[in-house]
Design a protein around this nucleic acid. Structure first.
Lengths: 234, 234, 234, 234
DNA sequence: AATGAATGAGTATTCATTCAT
DNA sequence: TATGAATGAATACTCATTCAT
């Protein structure tokens, strides 16, 4: 019985920032086709500028330029610079959550080892989908961590993993939230270290993925209520 | 035989930046006691400003003020603002390396489980020594991820862990560098996630540490050459 | 015989700006009822925005929004933002002139005291009709004092007062323009001071009016040709 | 017994703004001679830019340029643009207050007519001292009236006039504050109207002054507790 | 050595105005 | 005619860095 649930870690973030900070919401919903394209172009421009110029040189003007629009237009869709970064980070987290949710959803319980692989695969599939984008995201992270992402996003991720853990056919978790937190953090650490390099080498990234699997399996097996103990009592 | 050694991960950083970028070296070596005190005061001031004001409000003038010296004096010891941040980060890494080196140095080989705990303990002992400082360091990280730390520092850390792994009395590693890299990255991920919160709760930090141990033991056991173990049993 | 007529004061403004600056004229005369309504709505919107948001937040977009039309439409009726402010100020002056003209028009000569009261009453009746509008107008004043109102407007006001002074049955003015100028300026000063407050208190405004009367009577009596009267009696 | 003293007019301003708004205070007190000269140069530059370019083109950069310093230096002495305008306006009011205080201070009671002239003379002496500065001040007024001058300044002015009125040897005032308010407002109106012209003609300004005297005498005589009534009772 | 005043490039953001639809 | 998305010039303010004293 944990005196301080890991769920609190994320919960504590909630008080600091309202669920969806008003000043970070897009100003207008892009309904017209042109608008949609513009927003997309700006998104991509942020990534490009981040990759080629770095966070320090990421100015609103530069992003607009790269996107082929005027600053004014940029500000029509994003209330401020933070929102620019925020959006692409948020999008990434949502993507991640969706993929992880799939691991256990609509599926029969599976052996823990399978789940562990599934989680690692899900995690790295998103990270590896567009390596440059992932790299760009790590550049951003520091600049955002003040005005944090809406805690919902974190919670959703954590919950997705927690759910997956409950789907294990051959293991139970005393404190699944804690395990979910640690697993996610560890995978994040490995991914971050791997992507914190100017260039991403495909072969290296593949190995990174494999290490992630190894880590996932090993940690989860260790964190589960040891079967050994249970069988011993019988 | 890895087609792409993990050592390369850090080595690849070398090309981007000269080993010890000249413009980040302290301008004068603090030989006099007064100078030493000044540098120390500035160090501490950086941490304090970071903690109380945040990265965005960390200006050279403010740091100088807090340190009780003039900006001019600050620039006598640090060539630029980057160097200011750089220095305290570097110091942290050196500290970390020293502690990890102690794990295996001048010691007889030990069981892997012991080593795993020793490494996790070493890692968290540094992180938990001054939690606020650790928090401050994570704030910085993003800001200097452009001008990276000299790869030596990373390599030294990685090497320290690698050496420790070789000290295992009951396990061998096919690719100890890889294991060292993954272990360090995973621990870093857990620590980062734990400290990326406005307030650090001692109880939570203790649990973080315990999770680190669990992770360390589990991963290392899994990463070790299982084939050897199997042949031993036969 | 004044070596420098007070009429010149306003006349001197003429050289600076063409009588009715082309770029401030409404673009189209609102002949249709719909157009008339639109212009009226914009007028009112300017006042409302000014009152609720302040001059600094008076943007063309905001005015259009408040008026329930698009910016484009606004620009169909007003060539630029200046014109927007200009128009409502102009309207106010015209109103004022009309009311003051009534003081003496189609009326038999009256005692100066009566006229003085009449002028003050006229002046304040306009200012007090919609106190919030008056307040809004003072907010604007500074913003357009560059591109001044067409001097005609001032002249018309001054002339109206001058005419009234000539209607005095018991006094003559050596330089009625001068007296008109001073009286108008003084009343304007009192009104401005009174309205330059966040909130308008009805009781206070009533007293303001009374002071205006007192001022008007006192000044006009003093400014009238007392010498002539005295010599006449002797 | 007025149900709403005129003193309230100014008092009501007090609640809106703290006596000396922190963000308008000069950042550093100019102790060194160079600093003093710099501040003075900036002061003068504000006036010059206002006169030659107008309020709309009064930018901090432009002022700094005109003053022969960098923007940075300007901001070393003035926390923001408002403060720039604020300062010269404040200075003007202080000057005005000082001159008006002299009218009655250290003086034996005098006839009301003398005092009236004295007040008008004081008022216009300040306005006419540097006509261009006065003109510049009127341009500013509009831009400031949001963040008002510290009410102390107004009160000091009002008090000075009130005191003077009490020094009349041949008249008493039922509500001297009210009279002070009206007189000041009226004089301000006349001055404003006179200076709201591109060019100031000395001859015209002289006449303005004379009208001010006339107005002052006439109003004060009328506002005083009528001697007629008193003599009537005797 | 120390100081801190001066510098000025750099940046986020606004808003009047236009014009294709 | 009406719309409102797009434009981009303009501006207040900051802060790393220098250098005369």
């Amino acid at each position: 019985m944990p005196e301080h649930s890991f769920r609190k870690v994320f919960a504590s973030l909630e008080s600091a920032v309202p669920p969806v900070p008003g000043h970070l919401k897009p100003r207008k919903t892009p309904v017209q086709s042109r608008s949609g394209a513009t927003v997309e172009a700006i998104h991509e421009a942020v990534v490009q500028v981040l990759l080629t110029e770095g966070l320090a040189r990421l100015t609103t003007t530069r992003v607009a330029e790269r996107a082929g629009v005027s600053v004014g237009t940029l500000y029509q869709y994003f209330p401020n610079k933070q929102a620019l970064l925020f959006t692409i980070l948020l999008q990434h987290f949502v993507e991640m959550a969706e993929v992880i949710e799939k691991v256990s959803r609509d599926r029969a319980p599976r052996p823990l080892a399978d789940l562990a692989d599934g989680l690692a695969d899900a995690y790295f599939s998103v990270k590896l989908a567009r390596p440059e984008v992932t790299t760009a995201l790590y550049r951003i992270a520091g600049a955002i961590d003040q005005v944090r992402l809406p805690p919902d996003v974190f919670k959703r991720l954590e919950t997705a993993v927690t759910q997956a853990l409950k789907h294990a056919s051959d293991a139970t978790f005393h404190d699944p939230e804690r395990a979910a937190f640690t697993l996610l953090s560890a995978l994040a650490g490995v991914a971050r270290a791997g992507f914190s390099r100017p260039v991403s080498d495909p072969a290296f990234l593949r190995r990174l993925h494999r290490e992630g699997r190894l880590l996932s399996r090993a940690y989860l097996r260790a964190a589960a209520d040891t079967a050994a103990d249970l069988s011993a009592t019988s």
